[in-house]
Amino acid sequence: MDNTSTIPALDKQQILAAYEYRHATKVFDGSRRISEEDFGFILETGRLSPSSFGFEPWKFVVVQNPAVRQKLLPYAWGAQKQLPTASHFLLILARQPRDMAAGSDYIQGMMREVQKLPPEIAEGKSQVYDGFLKSDFELEGNERAMFEWGVRQTYLPLGNMMTAAALIGIDSCPIEGFDKQKIEQVLADEGIMDPEHFGIACMVAFGYRAGEPRAKTRQTAAQVVEWV
């Protein structure tokens, strides 16, 4: 018996149409709300996203409290129009270097409790991962580089969630325009984020566009693709 898992083939033109449809929405229609089911679907595509070694160095914080959004607003210059109008506003946090070290409680717990690796397999993976941090990417000992490595991984669920949203007709806007230290201070003061374990990676707003965007502009395939 063939037990190979399959999924229904998706229409390529419909998928490309979703990519054409997606744009960085600056102003959302504040009167329209994303359903709980639809936003749950978007979050699930983020949760199922890949990560290096499968260690998932992220956390998703959905900010729906108007008072918290207002406290973030002065320090998020790239979200001045999105924070007040988005149906859902998401902060993506990245794990701090202390959690991403090979021997940390977080990494060891991921292998033991989430990945459910046998002890001898976990030990081997831990050694490979430690070598990766020390030699391959030379991350160990460089706190900023280590954190940014985790941040880079958060862009995988970020992209997947925005694409998933576009596929069901929901708009989004990724945001890096913010004062990192001050945003983190707000989150720490509000008890939302433990700065010992997390830092802010990026933000993304979801909702429904208030108006039509200008035409999408991109370089041609010939300009960005090289075959060797």
Rank of each mutant, 00 (worst) to 15 (best):
F137V: 06
A102Y: 03
R95D: 01
S126H: 08
K81G: 08
D99L: 12
A145Y: 12
R144T: 05
E113N: 07
Y106M: 13
A102E: 03
S104W: 00
F89A: 06
K125Q: 08
G131C: 12
L139W: 04
A79V: 00
P118I: 15
K125G: 06
P97W: 01
Y129Q: 03
L117W: 14
V151K: 09
E138W: 03
W149Q: 10
D105V: 14
S126Q: 00
D136V: 11
E138F: 08
E113A: 15
E140D: 07
P66R: 09
L139G: 05
P74M: 12
M100G: 00
D136I: 03
M111I: 15
Q108Y: 15
R98Y: 04
A76N: 14
G103Q: 14
L83C: 07
P118L: 13
I121G: 07
R95Y: 04
Q82P: 00
T85L: 07
Q115T: 06
E148H: 08
I107H: 02
P97I: 03
F147R: 09
N142D: 10
L117M: 13
F137Y: 14
F137C: 11
K125N: 03
P74C: 12
D105R: 08
G78R: 04
G124R: 13
V68M: 14
F147K: 04
Q82F: 02
P97V: 01
R69S: 05
K116T: 11
G131A: 13
L139V: 15
Q96M: 08
R112M: 05
M100T: 10
Y75T: 03
D136Q: 08
D136A: 15
A67W: 09
L73V: 03
M110N: 01
H88D: 04
E113S: 00
A102L: 00
Y129A: 08
L73C: 09
L117C: 11
G78F: 04
E140S: 15
N142W: 07
R95G: 03
A94N: 07
V128M: 12
L133W: 01
